[in-house]
Design a protein around this nucleic acid. Structure first.
Lengths: 157, 157
DNA sequence: ATCATTTCGGTGACATGTCAACAATATGGT
DNA sequence: ACCATATTGTTGACATGTCACCGAAATGAT
């Protein structure tokens, strides 16, 4: 009996490290983005798939699928970015319910300036501390933990 | 020349997995907490150190240090939790600037009911998919990445 | 003792994220 | 064609998080 319900000392330590990394890495990236490009993480998340789409144009539904965001979240964020001139909304020809989101020239300029430095930051902070074999292992660990999380999420559908 | 500026295919894959894990694990935990205990992640973050403090009483400054939150964030969250009866503010005897935060009986009940299931969820999702050696390795990886992140953060001080 | 500086907590404005509800439109079964 | 249902996007209310600033009080240098 006595399922191992609580975490042992090493697990508690690793869990604390994960939470700290989660927070501090995200904060470091947001600050780097904002400082270098004036973009927020939410801005970047939407600009990246838009910049890879033909003509920088995506239907809101498809942009939402790319980033896996809820519709309301996407709508709010697009509204904020529209105000700042990073994107523009257009009508959807195929479907009168739909809404197209187009990257403006200013938005294209912002993402193209931001992307290299963003990638450099990811490399320097996340990958440089590990060698190739360790990256491979970490990928395996993430796969397995993700599978457990997705299985849990799947139950409630 | 040509510093490895962009991520290679495996790195991009691992990075995408990390971001997905980051988001989905956090969401799974928040939902479990809210469903089982009516607490948000922010509630839990403050209730945990309070429940371990003598008399469930901590000075705001020290509570903030425990969770490493900014003062304004802590103040906002304590205000919201005060409204819901989870904690109560008191004057600080030593320092007239200070403010004490005390766990109410309702707050103690909430955290004590939430904690075991929270720990179970962490174990099931994060640690059960890994064996002991893998947990040890993951801890090493996190240590090294964290060191890189903290070094970066330290530069701007 | 005096006064600049620091610490402490709080507030308001705003950005972000979630939820419930809504209106308009599309879709599919009959 | 008709109508129940699903999809799409938006909105408003609210929780959360960040930032700049403030006022009060403690601290430290002189």
């Amino acid at each position: 009996m006595t399922e191992p319900q609580w975490l042992n000392a090493e697990e508690a330590d690793v869990w604390a490290k994960y939470r700290r990394l989660r927070r501090d890495l995200h904060k470091a990236q947001e600050q780097q983005l904002l400082r270098d490009s004036g973009l927020s993480a939410a801005d970047y998340a939407l600009l990246a798939p838009l910049s890879e789409a033909p003509e920088g144009l995506l239907r809101a539904r498809d942009l939402g699928a790319e980033v896996d965001w809820e519709r309301s979240r996407l709508s709010h964020q697009v509204s904020r970015m529209e105000k700042r001139g990073l994107v523009a909304r257009e009508a959807c020809a195929d479907d009168a319910r739909g809404s197209m989101v187009r990257l403006t020239p200013a938005g294209r300029k912002a993402i193209e300036e931001a992307a290299p430095r963003h990638a450099q930051t990811v490399r320097r902070l996340f990958f440089d501390p590990l060698d190739a074999e360790e990256v491979r292992l970490l990928g395996q660990f993430l796969d397995r933990i993700l599978a457990a999380v997705e299985a849990e999420a799947g139950e409630s559908l």
